[in-house]
Design a protein around this nucleic acid. Sequence first.
DNA 1: CTAGGGTTAG
Length: 617
Amino acid sequence: MGEVLRLWNCSEVCSFPLLRPTVLQLSKHSKHVANSELSKKESKFMGHSLHGSYEAVQAILQKMQDAGFKPNSSSITSVLQAVTELCFLKHGKEIHSFVLRNGLDDYDVYVGTSLVDMYVKNNCLSSAQNVFINMKNKNIFAWNSLISGYSFKGLFEDAERLLDSIGEEGIKPNLVTWNGLVSGYAMWGRHKEALSTIHRIKSSGLTPNVVSWTALISGCSQNENYADSLKFFIQMQEECIRANSATISILLKACAGLSLLHKGEEIHCLCIRKGFVEDIFVATGLINMYSKSGKFKSAHEVFRKIKNKTLASWNCMIMAFATYGFGKEAISLFDEMRGAGVQPDAITFTALLSGCKNSGLVDEGWKLFDSMSTDYNIAPTIEHFSCMVDLLGRASYLDEAWDFIQTMPLKPDATIWGAFLASCRIHKNLAFAEIAAKNLFKLEPHNPANYVLMMNLYSMSNRWDDVERLKDLMKNAGVKNGLVWSWIQIDQAIHMFSAEGKPHTDAGKIYFELYHLVHEMKKLGYEPDISCVHQNIDEVEKKKLLLSHTEKLAITFGLMNRKSGEPIRVIKNTRVCSDCHTAAKYMSLVRKCEIFMKDGIRFHHFREGECTCNDCW
DNA sequence: CTAGGGTTAG
């Protein structure tokens, strides 16, 4: 940045067309680059030079004016492009008024289009529309910019209206126009409309391309609708549209979200064949996919092979270490990252702090939390505060966590109280838990998880009146315990276990096996934790009920069907109960088998009677 | 000068 600033301040910059000399000085390749042929990278560089030195830019603009230079539309356009890409609305507005002040025509096709685009990308639709309306000659680019602007804001009536009126100007919508609409619909969770827009592309005589389909698939992914992502990917292949690395990176995200390890591995093979592994987005997606599907080793391998690691790939790997309870390793990877000259961001610290909390590294956590603002000038966000509450609370420093909440500069939200409540449950502190719950019931009255945690605490202390009171509270607030399910993949089939749905076809055999298993587990010291049952029934009934928990059934089924040496991978949609957590540890011990479980909150890796979460979850 | 891509979170 220092060097750029110096360039901006030197006087020879002042020859027009605006800014070109600077770009030429910055450009490594050519001294004869025409302004209109600036590469994206160079425009970005210009943007960087604008950043933080806007006063200098203004001074130069003034100087140029005084010297009688006139900027032309192409120079204005390249500045606007840079400003747009970096989302410097303030600077964009300045340039707009500079254009007006200096008698440049802001209705010029090029200037107009880049102004529309700048306002659209900076969330100023009304200004974009004003410029648009005043443009004398509108080309398809201006239309597309505005239509996608409305579409991304979810204003589909306006977007469709614009689409209809394109024709009146004698212009035909192109694929980009349509793709903007597809993308908007998909992003807003309106997959049906997105898909029907793809069909509309066909009826307009064009052929939907990989971008159209990728937009649809990406929208599903963004809405955590991973199953549809995969469904539409198949549909895309049926239409003979080839995936590119962008499509693949989204698919990897979908596989990660569903912990579909086998599908992810398949895609990895495809990536190697097609050379997509070279793409940094794909590589990062692979790390994430392996990390979330329980194959830490593969995640690490992919990471080590990346030649030009980006901040995101470092972050992703630090998070993987954190997830698997390798807090110290996460921190040394952070040191390695800094050694490589990569500056951390807020996400890096979320990952690091979460690594500390999963490994109980309280001192290291404090150090990192402090160094964020002092050494890296990154203001801690609510997530970082929440991590700290979690870190302190889990390590049994409940009083410190309480003080931390009282003194933090941000208003504690549900994540803060949620972290505190979870710690109270672990350390069985009912008094603190009740305060946390009171806040949580106010902040998110419809989240069943909070009620369940509290019931857990009350039933531990045999306070059945309070359990009933909470059940009534839930009922009155209209909170329903969502469906609870666990599943496991055996060969190509997914086996679902749900308390509400149909029992598994092999239910009899599974229960038979489970009884045997529990018998063996008890020999090694397993004791059913009946506090997980919130009904006031007798002990034998409670123990029976515990056996029907979906995760136990899924693991048992996995043990019955696994190939020797293969770990078991179970996915559950809600937080694992503490009895099932203990049971899984004993199961891994008895059957000498690694068990991987992804629950609604985090990842557990059971091995030889231990879990990577260190019993805090 | 216009369209699609990765990372955190109780």
